[in-house]
Design a protein around this nucleic acid. Sequence first.
DNA 1: AAGCACACCTGCTAGC
DNA 2: TGCTAGCAGGTGTGCT
Length: 285
Amino acid sequence: MPELPEVEVVRRDLDPVVAGRTIVAVEVGRDRAVRREASIGAYVDALSGRPVTRTDRVGKFLVVHLGIGDGGTPRPDVVVVHLGMSGQLRTAAGGDDPRLAHTHVVWVLDDGAEVRFVDPRTFGHTWTDRTGADGRPTTTAHLGPDALAAGGAADVVAAALAGRRVAVKLRLMDQTALAGLGNIYTDEILFRAGVAPHRPAGSLGAAEVAAVADAIHEILPAAIAARGSSLGDGQYVDGAGRPGTYQEQHAVHAKAGRPCPGCGRPLARLKLGGRSSTFCPGCQV
DNA sequence: AAGCACACCTGCTAGC
DNA sequence: TGCTAGCAGGTGTGCT
Protein backbone atom coordinates (compact mmCIF):
# COMPACT_ATOMS: atom_id res chain seq x y z
CA MET A 1 0.00 0.00 0.00
CA PRO A 2 1.70 3.05 1.17
CA GLU A 3 4.78 4.58 -0.33
CA LEU A 4 6.40 7.84 0.67
CA PRO A 5 3.54 10.17 -0.36
CA GLU A 6 0.92 8.12 1.47
CA VAL A 7 3.04 7.87 4.63
CA GLU A 8 3.63 11.61 4.51
CA VAL A 9 -0.11 12.31 4.20
CA VAL A 10 -0.78 10.02 7.15
CA ARG A 11 1.95 11.78 9.13
CA ARG A 12 0.45 15.20 8.42
CA ASP A 13 -2.96 13.95 9.54
CA LEU A 14 -1.52 12.36 12.65
CA ASP A 15 0.67 15.23 13.78
CA PRO A 16 -1.98 17.70 15.00
CA VAL A 17 -3.81 14.90 16.82
CA VAL A 18 -0.81 13.64 18.79
CA ALA A 19 1.67 16.52 19.12
CA GLY A 20 1.57 17.94 22.64
CA ARG A 21 -0.64 15.13 23.93
CA THR A 22 0.29 12.27 26.22
CA ILE A 23 -0.25 8.57 25.55
CA VAL A 24 -2.16 7.33 28.58
CA ALA A 25 -2.84 3.74 27.53
CA VAL A 26 -1.80 1.27 24.83
CA GLU A 27 -3.78 -1.75 23.68
CA VAL A 28 -2.30 -4.52 21.57
CA GLY A 29 -4.88 -6.85 20.05
CA ARG A 30 -2.52 -8.80 17.86
CA ASP A 31 1.01 -9.53 19.02
CA ARG A 32 2.39 -9.82 15.48
CA ALA A 33 1.79 -6.08 15.00
CA VAL A 34 4.46 -5.31 17.58
CA ARG A 35 7.93 -6.55 16.67
CA ARG A 36 11.58 -5.94 17.52
CA GLU A 37 10.59 -5.70 21.18
CA ALA A 38 11.64 -7.89 24.09
CA SER A 39 7.94 -8.38 24.79
CA ILE A 40 4.56 -6.83 24.11
CA GLY A 41 4.61 -5.55 27.66
CA ALA A 42 7.87 -3.73 27.00
CA TYR A 43 6.21 -1.85 24.14
CA VAL A 44 3.16 -0.96 26.22
CA ASP A 45 5.30 0.15 29.16
CA ALA A 46 7.61 2.21 26.96
CA LEU A 47 4.71 4.23 25.52
CA SER A 48 2.40 4.56 28.50
CA GLY A 49 2.60 7.98 30.15
CA ARG A 50 4.81 9.44 27.45
CA PRO A 51 4.16 12.86 25.90
CA VAL A 52 4.41 13.14 22.11
CA THR A 53 6.64 15.97 20.96
CA ARG A 54 6.50 15.72 17.18
CA THR A 55 6.23 13.37 14.21
CA ASP A 56 8.71 12.61 11.49
CA ARG A 57 9.21 10.31 8.55
CA VAL A 58 12.17 8.50 7.02
CA GLY A 59 11.30 6.91 3.68
CA LYS A 60 8.19 4.85 4.39
CA PHE A 61 8.83 4.71 8.14
CA LEU A 62 6.69 6.95 10.34
CA VAL A 63 8.44 8.21 13.48
CA VAL A 64 6.71 9.60 16.58
CA HIS A 65 9.05 11.37 18.99
CA LEU A 66 8.40 10.92 22.69
CA GLY A 67 9.23 13.20 25.60
CA ILE A 68 10.59 12.01 28.94
CA GLY A 69 7.37 11.53 30.87
CA ASP A 70 7.36 9.90 34.27
CA GLY A 71 9.96 7.39 35.23
CA GLY A 72 13.44 8.63 34.66
CA THR A 73 15.31 5.52 33.64
CA PRO A 74 16.54 5.78 30.05
CA ARG A 75 13.84 4.71 27.68
CA PRO A 76 13.23 4.66 23.93
CA ASP A 77 12.71 8.16 22.57
CA VAL A 78 10.64 7.26 19.50
CA VAL A 79 7.95 4.86 18.40
CA VAL A 80 8.19 3.79 14.77
CA VAL A 81 5.34 2.54 12.57
CA HIS A 82 5.72 0.86 9.20
CA LEU A 83 2.44 0.38 7.35
CA GLY A 84 3.61 -2.55 5.22
CA MET A 85 1.26 -3.38 2.37
CA SER A 86 -2.13 -2.77 3.93
CA GLY A 87 -1.57 -0.81 7.13
CA GLN A 88 -3.61 2.22 8.09
CA LEU A 89 -3.05 4.63 10.96
CA ARG A 90 -6.40 6.17 11.75
CA THR A 91 -7.37 8.74 14.28
CA ALA A 92 -10.62 8.71 16.23
CA ALA A 93 -11.84 11.66 18.30
CA GLY A 94 -13.01 9.36 21.06
CA GLY A 95 -13.14 5.72 22.00
CA ASP A 96 -16.81 5.50 21.11
CA ASP A 97 -16.18 5.17 17.37
CA PRO A 98 -16.51 1.50 16.50
CA ARG A 99 -13.18 -0.12 15.75
CA LEU A 100 -12.60 -1.58 12.34
CA ALA A 101 -11.74 -5.23 11.84
CA HIS A 102 -7.96 -5.81 12.01
CA THR A 103 -7.38 -3.03 14.50
CA HIS A 104 -4.23 -4.41 16.09
CA VAL A 105 -2.80 -1.56 18.17
CA VAL A 106 -4.47 1.45 19.81
CA TRP A 107 -2.80 4.40 21.50
CA VAL A 108 -5.19 6.22 23.82
CA LEU A 109 -4.38 9.91 24.33
CA ASP A 110 -5.01 12.12 27.33
CA ASP A 111 -7.84 13.98 25.56
CA GLY A 112 -9.66 10.72 24.83
CA ALA A 113 -8.64 10.58 21.18
CA GLU A 114 -7.27 7.33 19.82
CA VAL A 115 -4.70 6.43 17.20
CA ARG A 116 -5.48 3.07 15.70
CA PHE A 117 -3.21 0.83 13.67
CA VAL A 118 -5.34 -1.26 11.31
CA ASP A 119 -3.66 -3.83 9.07
CA PRO A 120 -5.41 -6.78 7.39
CA ARG A 121 -2.30 -8.29 5.84
CA THR A 122 -0.18 -7.85 8.96
CA PHE A 123 2.99 -6.96 7.10
CA GLY A 124 3.08 -3.65 8.91
CA HIS A 125 4.30 -3.32 12.48
CA THR A 126 5.34 -0.91 15.20
CA TRP A 127 8.22 -0.79 17.68
CA THR A 128 10.05 1.56 19.97
CA ASP A 129 13.55 2.75 19.24
CA ARG A 130 16.22 5.31 20.07
CA THR A 131 17.49 7.99 17.75
CA GLY A 132 21.12 8.03 16.72
CA ALA A 133 23.47 10.92 16.09
CA ASP A 134 21.79 11.61 12.73
CA GLY A 135 18.41 12.04 14.42
CA ARG A 136 17.01 8.92 12.75
CA PRO A 137 15.85 5.86 14.67
CA THR A 138 18.65 3.27 14.80
CA THR A 139 16.41 0.72 13.06
CA THR A 140 16.24 3.01 10.00
CA ALA A 141 20.00 3.51 9.81
CA HIS A 142 20.23 1.21 6.79
CA LEU A 143 18.01 3.46 4.68
CA GLY A 144 19.43 5.68 1.97
CA PRO A 145 18.60 9.38 1.60
CA ASP A 146 14.91 10.20 1.91
CA ALA A 147 13.57 10.66 -1.62
CA LEU A 148 11.46 13.70 -0.70
CA ALA A 149 14.06 15.39 1.48
CA ALA A 150 16.64 14.90 -1.27
CA GLY A 151 14.23 16.84 -3.49
CA GLY A 152 15.25 14.95 -6.58
CA ALA A 153 18.84 16.17 -6.36
CA ALA A 154 20.62 14.78 -9.42
CA ASP A 155 23.81 13.95 -7.53
CA VAL A 156 21.87 11.88 -4.97
CA VAL A 157 20.10 9.95 -7.72
CA ALA A 158 23.35 9.51 -9.63
CA ALA A 159 25.03 8.06 -6.55
CA ALA A 160 22.15 5.64 -6.05
CA LEU A 161 22.31 4.32 -9.62
CA ALA A 162 26.02 4.44 -10.45
CA GLY A 163 27.76 1.19 -11.23
CA ARG A 164 24.72 -1.03 -10.67
CA ARG A 165 23.72 -3.74 -13.09
CA VAL A 166 20.34 -4.35 -11.49
CA ALA A 167 17.27 -2.96 -13.28
CA VAL A 168 16.90 0.78 -12.63
CA LYS A 169 13.37 0.30 -11.32
CA LEU A 170 14.54 -2.23 -8.72
CA ARG A 171 17.40 0.05 -7.71
CA LEU A 172 15.00 2.96 -7.22
CA MET A 173 12.86 0.68 -5.03
CA ASP A 174 15.91 -0.41 -3.00
CA GLN A 175 15.39 1.46 0.26
CA THR A 176 19.10 1.39 1.04
CA ALA A 177 19.79 3.36 -2.15
CA LEU A 178 16.98 5.91 -1.90
CA ALA A 179 14.24 5.69 0.71
CA GLY A 180 10.53 6.02 0.03
CA LEU A 181 9.86 4.86 -3.53
CA GLY A 182 7.78 1.75 -4.25
CA ASN A 183 6.11 0.04 -7.16
CA ILE A 184 3.59 2.77 -8.00
CA TYR A 185 5.85 5.79 -7.95
CA THR A 186 8.82 4.14 -9.68
CA ASP A 187 6.48 3.23 -12.57
CA GLU A 188 5.32 6.85 -12.77
CA ILE A 189 8.80 8.35 -12.32
CA LEU A 190 10.39 6.22 -15.02
CA PHE A 191 7.59 7.00 -17.47
CA ARG A 192 7.98 10.72 -16.80
CA ALA A 193 11.74 10.39 -17.28
CA GLY A 194 11.40 8.36 -20.49
CA VAL A 195 13.56 5.53 -19.12
CA ALA A 196 12.65 1.85 -19.50
CA PRO A 197 12.34 0.09 -16.12
CA HIS A 198 14.53 -2.88 -17.04
CA ARG A 199 17.55 -0.81 -18.07
CA PRO A 200 20.58 -1.54 -15.87
CA ALA A 201 20.75 1.24 -13.29
CA GLY A 202 24.34 2.06 -14.13
CA SER A 203 23.63 2.38 -17.86
CA LEU A 204 21.79 5.69 -17.56
CA GLY A 205 23.55 8.72 -18.98
CA ALA A 206 23.79 12.01 -17.12
CA ALA A 207 20.77 13.46 -18.95
CA GLU A 208 18.69 10.40 -18.08
CA VAL A 209 19.75 10.55 -14.43
CA ALA A 210 18.75 14.22 -14.40
CA ALA A 211 15.39 13.34 -15.95
CA VAL A 212 14.77 10.72 -13.25
CA ALA A 213 15.73 13.24 -10.57
CA ASP A 214 13.39 15.84 -12.06
CA ALA A 215 10.57 13.30 -12.19
CA ILE A 216 11.06 12.47 -8.49
CA HIS A 217 11.08 16.18 -7.70
CA GLU A 218 7.79 16.74 -9.55
CA ILE A 219 5.84 13.59 -8.78
CA LEU A 220 6.30 13.15 -5.01
CA PRO A 221 5.00 16.62 -4.03
CA ALA A 222 2.15 16.34 -6.55
CA ALA A 223 1.16 12.98 -5.07
CA ILE A 224 1.26 14.40 -1.54
CA ALA A 225 -0.83 17.39 -2.66
CA ALA A 226 -3.39 14.92 -4.08
CA ARG A 227 -3.29 13.05 -0.74
CA GLY A 228 -1.70 9.91 -2.15
CA SER A 229 -2.79 7.08 -4.44
CA SER A 230 -5.65 4.72 -3.62
CA LEU A 231 -5.86 1.78 -6.00
CA GLY A 232 -8.79 -0.43 -6.86
CA ASP A 233 -8.65 -2.57 -3.76
CA GLY A 234 -9.11 0.55 -1.67
CA GLN A 235 -6.54 -0.27 0.96
CA TYR A 236 -4.92 3.13 1.29
CA VAL A 237 -6.78 5.79 3.22
CA ASP A 238 -5.51 8.79 5.14
CA GLY A 239 -5.70 9.36 8.88
CA ALA A 240 -9.38 10.19 8.64
CA GLY A 241 -10.24 7.18 6.47
CA ARG A 242 -10.47 9.07 3.18
CA PRO A 243 -8.88 7.74 -0.03
CA GLY A 244 -6.34 9.78 -1.99
CA THR A 245 -6.83 11.04 -5.52
CA TYR A 246 -3.41 10.86 -7.14
CA GLN A 247 -4.38 7.64 -8.94
CA GLU A 248 -6.42 9.90 -11.24
CA GLN A 249 -3.13 11.34 -12.43
CA HIS A 250 -1.31 8.04 -12.91
CA ALA A 251 0.06 7.78 -16.43
CA VAL A 252 1.01 4.11 -16.50
CA HIS A 253 0.87 2.24 -13.19
CA ALA A 254 -1.50 -0.76 -13.38
CA LYS A 255 -2.71 0.38 -16.80
CA ALA A 256 -1.16 -2.34 -18.99
CA GLY A 257 -2.94 -2.65 -22.33
CA ARG A 258 -4.38 0.85 -22.15
CA PRO A 259 -3.06 3.49 -24.55
CA CYS A 260 0.07 5.36 -23.56
CA PRO A 261 -0.84 8.96 -22.70
CA GLY A 262 2.21 10.05 -24.68
CA CYS A 263 2.07 8.08 -27.94
CA GLY A 264 -1.15 6.09 -27.82
CA ARG A 265 0.49 2.69 -28.17
CA PRO A 266 -0.59 0.03 -25.67
CA LEU A 267 1.29 0.05 -22.38
CA ALA A 268 3.28 -3.11 -21.67
CA ARG A 269 3.64 -5.15 -18.51
CA LEU A 270 6.86 -6.66 -17.29
CA LYS A 271 7.87 -8.66 -14.20
CA LEU A 272 10.87 -7.29 -12.36
CA GLY A 273 11.96 -8.74 -9.06
CA GLY A 274 8.63 -10.54 -8.80
CA ARG A 275 6.71 -7.27 -9.04
CA SER A 276 4.70 -6.18 -12.04
CA SER A 277 5.82 -3.04 -13.85
CA THR A 278 3.96 -1.05 -16.45
CA PHE A 279 5.73 1.06 -19.05
CA CYS A 280 5.51 2.36 -22.61
CA PRO A 281 7.89 0.51 -24.96
CA GLY A 282 7.74 3.49 -27.31
CA CYS A 283 8.29 6.41 -24.95
CA GLN A 284 10.63 4.70 -22.47
CA VAL A 285 13.97 3.64 -23.87
C1' DA B 1 28.90 -8.93 -2.38
C1' DA B 2 25.43 -7.79 -5.58
C1' DG B 3 21.50 -9.84 -6.98
C1' DC B 4 17.97 -13.03 -6.58
C1' DA B 5 14.14 -16.09 -4.62
C1' DC B 6 11.31 -16.65 -1.03
C1' DA B 7 8.74 -16.09 3.31
C1' DC B 8 5.57 -13.49 5.86
C1' DC B 9 -0.35 -12.71 5.75
C1' DT B 10 -5.29 -11.60 4.25
C1' DG B 11 -8.60 -10.41 0.87
C1' DC B 12 -10.21 -9.64 -3.58
C1' DT B 13 -10.90 -10.92 -8.51
C1' DA B 14 -10.88 -13.62 -12.62
C1' DG B 15 -11.66 -17.85 -14.51
C1' DC B 16 -13.37 -22.31 -14.60
C1' DT C 1 -23.01 -20.60 -7.29
C1' DG C 2 -18.75 -22.11 -5.53
C1' DC C 3 -14.11 -23.30 -5.72
C1' DT C 4 -9.17 -22.21 -6.79
C1' DA C 5 -5.31 -19.84 -8.50
C1' DG C 6 -3.23 -15.65 -8.90
C1' DC C 7 -2.32 -11.16 -7.55
C1' DA C 8 -1.85 -6.84 -4.47
C1' DG C 9 1.20 -0.62 -2.40
C1' DG C 10 6.75 -3.94 1.35
C1' DT C 11 10.66 -5.68 3.92
C1' DG C 12 13.95 -8.97 5.72
C1' DT C 13 16.41 -13.30 5.23
C1' DG C 14 19.47 -16.39 3.37
C1' DC C 15 21.37 -18.44 -0.62
C1' DT C 16 24.44 -18.25 -4.75
